[in-house]
Design a protein around this nucleic acid. Structure first.
Lengths: 212, 212
DNA sequence: GCGGCAATTATTCAAGCGTATAATAAGCCT
DNA sequence: AGGCTTATTATACGCTTGAATAATTGCCGC
């Protein structure tokens, strides 16, 4: 019998490949089209292998969800820490969230597909909650540092409220900018984001957006 | 042969029932669980009938998407026109978008499920675009009327930019408030929304949120 | 009250689904 | 170099899927 030749990969490598293939299939065919066979084909293996690395299809989907969300948050945080001042870090964080690769139709499709499962499967809800809180905390940390740098006194409640508003604005612009990218010019969205954050924080226009 | 008795309904009535059943199934089981048979059972008919009213399952899904989006936008617009002044109408529109029944887990699940198909099926993209533009236009109309009422001169570009920012904020708060409803107090989200809109429009604190 | 139209049901079909199990070969260890 | 482990393939199973077709029956107009 002619069996196809194959390569024995490490567990980490295979899982990575399978997760990547899962995301490819969801983005391309929707969550209904992300079948075990399609995913396996995309990963260059046969279907049975999936059950060797994951307890079932659902567990693989959950791992894929974690991967997407980690990627998004970490990209924004990575962009932020490049800044030298707290103001610059906040600025970079905002911009990163409304700029590729975060604003990417594929990423948005994946995000939406998983969001739609939050009310169905508690595991997905937990993954979302975890990442939402992490995002909120990252943003609040940047915000507090910025206020301190500016010698501005802000109550804890007000800080939290502003973090939530900023988060909402950023998420909303991310959505709009990704779903209607053709309606916005190159820097239009980032400029709008910075101007809006200035307004939300009651800063003077240009205080945040002006490069150094 | 014992066939089940049935009721011959009008076309409008049947389509409505089938669409409602479709949304029920998507919300409850996810888009993968919204099968022809499940939907038919939920609607109290047999599967074959679906193909009598829709060219196929996809067309029914599209009709269902239209229904969801119409419901969301119209709820907010309906709340707005109850206001007596432009300021009150803007205020009511904002609040409606971050308050039940718009902030509803079921609605969000449905919305997300359809959003995830935008990149796959151009028909879904068209439905989204149409409703997004309608929402934007409704918001911009309210905003322009408010500026006029306040005798405030705002350039066309600035008005558009602020509409987009407001839209982003509202959408983002809608997302947060629905996905993490347990983290927010009863009026916390609406209060935050109003305060944030005040800030975005560079109004004095309380100018919009104060009743009357 | 009954004839006929068409809305609805019932049944069938091929394809594809996720999973389980057994056979196989890749490649490390000695 | 050759045996052993186990990652991987191959195949089969029972169900479910969306769609097509044929049979039926509710009900409107006469």
């Amino acid at each position: 019998m002619n069996r196809r030749t194959y390569h024995r990969a490490s567990e980490a490598e295979r899982r990575e490949d399978l997760i990547a293939a899962t995301l490819d299939c969801i983005a391309e065919f929707g969550i209904q089209g992300a079948t075990v066979r399609q995913i396996a084909m995309r990963a260059g293996v046969t279907g049975g292998l999936i059950r060797h690395y994951f307890a079932g299809k659902d567990q693989m989907l959950q791992a894929a969800y974690r991967k997407v969300m980690m990627g998004m948050t970490e990209t924004a945080i990575a962009a932020a820490i490049e800044g030298e001042t707290a103001k610059s870090r906040l600025r970079r964080f905002i911009i990163a969230n409304v700029t590729p690769p975060v604003t990417d139709p594929r990423t948005l499709s994946l995000w939406a597909a998983f969001i739609s499962h939050i009310q169905i499967d508690p595991t997905f809800a937990a993954i979302h909650r975890e990442n939402y809180l992490a995002f909120l905390e990252a943003l609040e940390t940047l915000l507090v540092a910025f206020f301190r740098e500016e010698n501005r006194e802000v109550s804890k409640q007000q800080c939290r409220a502003q973090t939530i508003a900023l988060s909402a604005l950023v998420d909303g612009l991310w959505l709009e900018g990704t779903l209607a990218a053709d309606l916005f010019g190159d820097r239009e969205l980032a400029d709008n984001a910075l101007a809006s954050v200035e307004a939300l924080l009651r800063l003077a226009p240009g205080e945040l957006s002006a490069e150094q």
